[in-house]
Structures are given as C-alpha cells and as structure tokens.
Nucleic acid binder design. Structure first.
Lengths: 141, 141
DNA sequence: CTATATGCAAATAGTTTGCCTGTTA
DNA sequence: TAACAGGCAAACTATTTGCATATAG
C-alpha cells in the first residue's frame, strides 16, 4: 500500500521535472522500494530484469538519474567503487561495514544532522558516512 | 624544514610496513607536502613529472598506496569522480564546492569529530563531507 | 642474489554517449 | 508528429594488472 502511494507520486514527480513516466522508470522505482538496501546500478539492473527481462543497463542508469532528479532516490557514495542508490529520503547517515561491505542507514537526532561550518561556507548537502564493523561482523570477529 | 622532518620519517614509516624507500616514493611524498590541497592521482602525476619526468602513472598509484599504508596520506572520496589524496593527517572534515570543485579541510572541535553510533556498530573511520558553495563561490553567486 | 619496485601497455570496472528505433504528450 | 526514452554497442575515465627490467637489502 505504501509502495502504491509512492508509485502514484512518481508520475507527478517526473512531470514536475519535465520527465515522462515510462514503464521502465516505474519498474525501477518499484525495485528500489522492494528492498530497503543500497544497491549499485548493477544490482538494480539484475533485480529489474526479473520483471522486465529486456531492460538495459543504460536505461537503468537513465531511470535512476530520473528518480534522483525528482527527489525520490538519493545517490550514496561510500567508497571508491560503484555508486549506490538509496530510497530513504529522510536525512540520515550511512555506516559501511569494512567486512561484509553492507551499507546501513543510521538515523540521527535532527539536532546533530547539520554540523556547523566555518563562516562563508554555504552547505547544501551533508554526506556523513562512517566505516567500521557492523553489529553482525563485530560479533563474528 | 618541516618537510625535511616529514621526509626523514618516510623511510622508517615505510620500513615499518615492510615497504622500501625509493626515489619515487620520496618524490611523490614531497609533491604531496608542497601544496596542501586534495589532488587526484592524475594531478599528483602531473606535478611529480616536473621533478621526475620518467615517473609513470602506475608508480604514482603505487607510491600513493604506500603512503596511505604507512599513514602519511589519507584517501578522500568526496564524489563519484577520481579519488583524492590528502596529506593532512589531523582528523577533520571536508567541504566540497559544487561550483569550483575545490575540496577544503574543515577543522572541527574534537568533541564533534566522532558522532555516536547505535550500539553494536564499531566505527573505525569517520568520513564526513559536506557539499555546497565555498566562501569564494558563494560571494560570486 | 632475491624480493620488491618501476615503467609500459593492456585489461578491467563503472559509467556515459551516439545512433537508431519506439513511445509519449 | 515532435520531443523524449529505450536498447545496443562503442567510447571513456579511473584504476589495476602482467610482464620485463631495474634497484634495494
């Protein structure tokens, strides 16, 4: 149900940016909402092919771009490897596990979200990511 | 003088990691200390060629790797483009200007440096980068 | 003399682009 | 029917690798 609401938003959101709603964009968005993790474009591609076997990698990039432009998905850049995409639009931090490579959302009290900058700097986006061991991997040593 | 001290450290630091001191590694380190900015490997390569015309790109990567391994340089990953290298080993944040692309060090009171994580997470590195307009570009609108 | 580092060129990974066809408003 | 989107393959950028030669311990 919640996904349905989101999917209906999609058309308006795209239109607001002069972008057209297409089957591929809707499908990619649906795929992004299905698992609340931080897939790479490659992973989105593989998941998207399950319901739409002919979709191409270039289209996945195009769709993800469109979703980023209309504010439904965020790009996350936690390491030197592939860009990841995050459907959680709440302002939050990321924790990347050095052992399993997984990326976790860290919810943070609003007061802490926007650290002060020296005067003159005008921040628009805070990208805070922490690396280390996630609870699972820390337990397993 | 300050650089000289650093350069002398280099041999021991490398040895401590089982790495050999070479002319190239010393030269790349010297280049890193000359301008306290956040060059990409490509930029380090171009600067390094001035004093050592035959150095190769692969060697620049090797040298930067060696410097990272022995804790004299840090990798900085502020966008989806090339990795940057930072000779400032003090714990600090980064500010990346969306207009000019420049990366600035932001010194932060120690209390703020290591935000708390939910229990179970064991952080080893905090990578905090903020994007927006730097003082110069903000002034120029 | 043996292990490690360099230089070069080729390989790779992630992403973007060009071109032609299909689809949307 | 004009502008935009999709599919495919080729191009591109940043980085890594393999291999022959050079150098450090």
């Amino acid at each position: 149900m919640k996904d349905r609401v989101h999917t209906e938003q999609l058309g308006e959101r795209l239109a607001g940016r002069g972008l057209r709603p297409t089957a591929q964009r809707e499908h990619v968005y649906r795929v992004m909402l299905q698992e609340r993790d931080h897939p790479t474009a490659e992973q989105v591609f593989m998941r998207a092919k399950k319901g739409m076997p002919d979709i191409s990698m270039a289209t996945v990039y195009n769709c993800l771009d469109a979703l980023v432009k209309c504010g439904l998905v965020k790009e996350v850049n936690v390491d030197r490897f592939a860009m990841r995409y995050c459907p959680n639009m709440e302002e939050h931090w990321h924790f990347r596990c050095d052992t399993c490579g997984e990326v976790f959302d860290i919810d943070v009290p609003p007061a802490k979200l926007r650290p002060e900058m020296p005067k003159g700097f005008q921040p628009t986006a805070y990208e805070i990511s922490v690396r280390g061991a996630c609870p699972n991997c820390a337990k397993a040593n």
